[in-house]
Computed example of a mutant assay.
Amino acid sequence: MSQALWQQLPAFLTHIDLPNWPSWLGIVGASSAVSSIAVLSMLGLRNRIILRRERRDVALEVAVSLEGYARECRSMMHRADWAREEVARLGNGDAAKSATLPRFSFPERIQWIRLSHRVVSELRDFPANVHAGRSDLDAFAEFGDPSAYCEEVSLESAKAARDALVLARETRRKHGCVPWRPGAKDADLTRELMTFISIANEKRQAHQDPFGQRRSAQRSSHSASDAGEPAIAPQ
């Protein structure tokens, strides 16, 4: 069939007005340019859609790993409380050795190149912070009281879990992932962590306040004595 078309081509060319060939070439060139632009636009749109989907998948995997770590930290909080009770019951610190801030690392399969440099920097800081917290606890365990060490493990685990959930929520929001829908067991996890941290900070403040109140009372007593006023003894 193609051979027949080639045979008919000279006859077709004889019916074309040669002076109008530039116009024909211009029309054909413009049509080709429009077609090329349309094809490139469609390819670019498809690539952007694929890139956005891949970025969202990577962000979702990051968020899921952070949320899993938060649940692991909550389990360590309960284990640390059990270890503290065992230390008080047995009178030795063997049970405290089982309590420590859980390790954390992102899955190796995560393709960080899909995410922006700023987002990657924020995410990569979290494992480093966890490692620093573990190092501080190890130093405390070497010289500190086992019961106090267990309390520190519970508090640091709660803080790490809170930070992990915040980072996971922000990662989902920035990349258009669906919000986290925890099951019944984890429905109140965020509130549980915030309540625990608040109570622990209040206990720590209460342990520090008597010394601060005593120093304040002493300063008031000295000031009153210098002014010639009778000193009021602290109750």
Rank of each mutant, 00 (worst) to 15 (best):
E86G: 04
Q218N: 01
D81P: 00
E142Q: 13
G212P: 04
C177N: 07
V153M: 01
R84L: 05
A227V: 04
A80K: 00
S216F: 10
R172G: 03
S121C: 09
T171L: 01
A80I: 03
T100C: 04
G44H: 14
Q235P: 11
W24C: 04
R162Y: 06
D125W: 05
H78R: 08
A59D: 01
S35A: 13
I110W: 07
R89N: 12
A160M: 05
N201C: 10
E152I: 00
L18P: 05
S216D: 14
A148W: 03
R219E: 03
H15M: 12
R71Q: 11
A200Q: 09
C73P: 06
R124T: 12
T190S: 13
A30Q: 11
N129Y: 04
A70I: 00
L45H: 15
D125T: 11
R48Y: 14
H117C: 04
Q7I: 03
P234M: 02
P127A: 02
Q208F: 06
E192F: 05
Q205K: 15
A141C: 05
S116Y: 05
L60I: 00
S135V: 08
M76E: 05
R74M: 14
M76L: 04
A11P: 03
K97P: 01
S121A: 15
L115S: 04
S225C: 09
R162N: 13
F211M: 02
L51N: 13
S121H: 15
A132Q: 13
L167D: 02
